[in-house]
């Protein structure tokens, strides 16, 4: 069984404005998503996550490179039957109700009336919109639209679910509900590919993560492999006469000696915590390496583009 999603050196350049100024949204992205995994697509805002997912969904055409879903070319109708997609900040027909929207989407998959009813009711319940199904979408809040977007992505009971920022617009409880839903989908045997710029979303549930910075793929792999297992430092908190002090002990130093010294001095040991690299550290390291914020690389890029 080959990978469900294969992205092969995808690249996308937009031409902007009257002078058709070139903007490279995605420079070089390759990855695969395997059967029954939760794959996190992680990157800061403007990294090219949405652009990449849109290429996979057939909404925009790559400038170069190619992609396959279920081993079929993009926009293959048989492949699309097994696919569900939540767009970023979804917006739907505001003259419809939630139930009517799901009914329309069900029709596009050729579901009969009974199946559409059943699935729509089940999905509205599942995303927490059980009582809002009859309400017009123009009265939905952003979070409700997000939930409805997830429901419509699941209308065909897809094998592959692609979600662009599924937790955005939701409160902490809502985020947890969506995380749980993604984990449930995996338990049902489905494959989930989702994008996010929030580290804790992937840290908790992803089997593998791809990190995208400035339109380039920095890293792909299981989180444990991406994170350096190296000890950064050990944090020691000591206390004496109600005053506490925090010590950052470098990895090469002898923590045991330090502790016995402290105890001998009549200090009380509150905590000893070894710090390894967190996802956040990795994120910062990657963004720094790509230098997207400052722009030395971007300026260089702009200059070469103007020349060419």
């Amino acid at each position: 069984m080959s990978a469900l999603v294969e992205a092969d050196h995808l690249q996308k350049t937009f031409a902007l404005g009257f002078f058709r100024k070139k903007v490279r949204a995605v420079e070089d992205v390759s990855f695969t998503v395997e059967q029954n995994e939760i794959f996190g697509f992680l990157g800061p805002n403007g990294a090219g996550k949405t652009t990449t997912l849109k290429m996979l969904m057939g909404l925009i055409f790559p400038s170069s490179g190619q992609a396959r879903i279920f081993g079929k070319p993009i926009n293959d109708r048989q492949a699309k039957r097994r696919l569900g997609f939540l767009p970023e900040n979804p917006y739907f027909y505001d003259y419809l109700s939630g139930g009517e929207l799901l009914d329309l989407m069900g029709r596009l998959f050729g579901l009969d009336r009974a199946a559409r009813r059943k699935r729509a009711a089940m999905l509205l319940d599942r995303v927490g919109l059980g009582r809002a199904g009859d309400r017009a979408l123009r009265k939905y809040s952003k979070g409700m639209l997000q939930r409805l977007g997830i429901a419509q992505a699941l209308i065909n009971d897809p094998e592959l679910v692609v979600l662009d920022e599924p937790m955005s617009g939701l409160d902490p409880i809502g985020r947890k509900e969506i995380r749980d839903l993604i984990v449930d989908l995996k338990a049902e045997g489905k494959t989930v590919l989702f994008s996010t710029h929030i580290l804790s979303d992937v840290e908790l549930i992803c089997d593998r993560v791809a990190m995208l910075v400035g339109g380039r793929m920095r890293d792909v792999g299981p989180l444990s492999k991406l994170l350096s297992p190296r000890l950064l430092h050990t944090e020691v908190v000591l206390e004496k006469d109600g005053a506490s002090e925090l010590l950052r002990v470098p990895p090469e130093a002898d923590v045991d000696a330090l502790l016995s010294e402290a105890l001998a001095a009549g200090k009380h040991v509150v905590s000893v915590t070894p710090r390894r690299e967190s996802l956040e550290d990795l994120f910062v390291r990657e963004v720094d390496a790509a230098d997207v914020g400052g722009g030395a690389e971007r300026m260089k890029r702009d200059r070469t583009e103007r020349k060419s």
Partner: peptide, 14 residues
């Protein structure tokens, strides 16, 4: 313009 096509085009339609 309202991006309603984003959810539609990935459905099995031409």
């Amino acid at each position: 313009d309202r991006k309603t096509v984003f959810a539609l085009i990935p459905k099995p339609i031409h």
